Simulated assay, not measured.
Amino acid sequence: MWRIWQLNCFAGRAFTALELRKKLHGKRYPLHIIDSVIADVKCKGLLNDDFYAESFSRSRWLTANWGPRRIKQALAQKGVSETVANKATKQVFEEDDPDMSNQDMLHGMSKSSMDRLFVQASKQWLRGQDASPEKRKARIIRWLQYRGFSWGVTGFILKKLQSQFPP
């Protein structure tokens, strides 16, 4: 019976160790069984918080334009350690390019990540063309901050938008 549940559980989506622990606890399994199951699936490679964190980070960055801070908060809620979350967001936003030097980094983001963010921010900026410059500025700041980007990234993108699309 456990094998069937195991296959069904992991067929839908990946889990962190904490999420699986909560799921099993909710089904009223004894704690020693829960610990045994988690150890078993980790041993088989079916449960890996490092892989989960990197996959989750990349997904949220590419589909929802979430920034590092928001991704780290979501990972913390899922029980991923701060160290693992930092490593995952670093992999996604710095894109571990061996040819990239520290000079190619802007506020903790690779040039390609910053360029991608600028394209998305440009779409938001151009949507509010009928609004005053102050409202457009406030709107883009809220948009970037809500998504979890630092003030350094927000300021850089804002200056670039204002120079690229003058009023």
Rank of each mutant, 00 (worst) to 15 (best):
E134H: 03
V153N: 04
M109L: 15
I141N: 03
C43G: 12
L75F: 07
A121I: 02
W5N: 12
V80A: 04
W61F: 12
D49V: 15
G108N: 09
K87F: 13
V119R: 09
S113P: 01
D99A: 06
T16L: 02
D99G: 03
P98C: 04
S59A: 13
A64E: 05
G79H: 08
L24P: 09
I4D: 14
H25M: 09
T16N: 09
G79D: 13
I33Y: 09
R70W: 05
L18V: 07
K159L: 10
D35F: 00
K137W: 01
N102P: 00
D49I: 15
V92K: 03
S81M: 04
A64R: 05
A85L: 04
A53K: 11
W143Y: 11
W151P: 00
D35G: 08
L126E: 08
S101F: 02
R116E: 03
T89Q: 06
K123H: 08
W66E: 05
G128L: 11
R147P: 01
D115P: 02
R136I: 01
A39D: 13
V119M: 08
N86T: 04
F156Q: 03
K159W: 13
I34K: 15
E134W: 00
E54M: 07
T154G: 04
E94Y: 08
V153D: 03
I34R: 15
V119T: 07
I140E: 00
I33C: 06
L144H: 02
G79A: 06
I157T: 04
W5E: 15
K90S: 09
G12R: 11
D40I: 08
G79W: 05
V37N: 13
M100Y: 03
M100F: 02
Q6H: 10
K78R: 14
W151G: 04
S36P: 00
P68W: 08
T89P: 00
I157L: 12
L7G: 10
K135W: 00
R3E: 14
L46F: 06
R147S: 03
I38Q: 10
P68Y: 08
V41W: 06
L47M: 10
G108V: 15
D115Y: 05
A138Y: 01
K159T: 10
Q103C: 09
E94Q: 12
K90E: 12
S122K: 05
Q6Y: 09
F118L: 08
A17F: 10
L47E: 10
R3L: 12
C43W: 15
F165A: 02
A39R: 15
N65E: 06
L7H: 07
L62Y: 02
Q129P: 00
F15I: 15
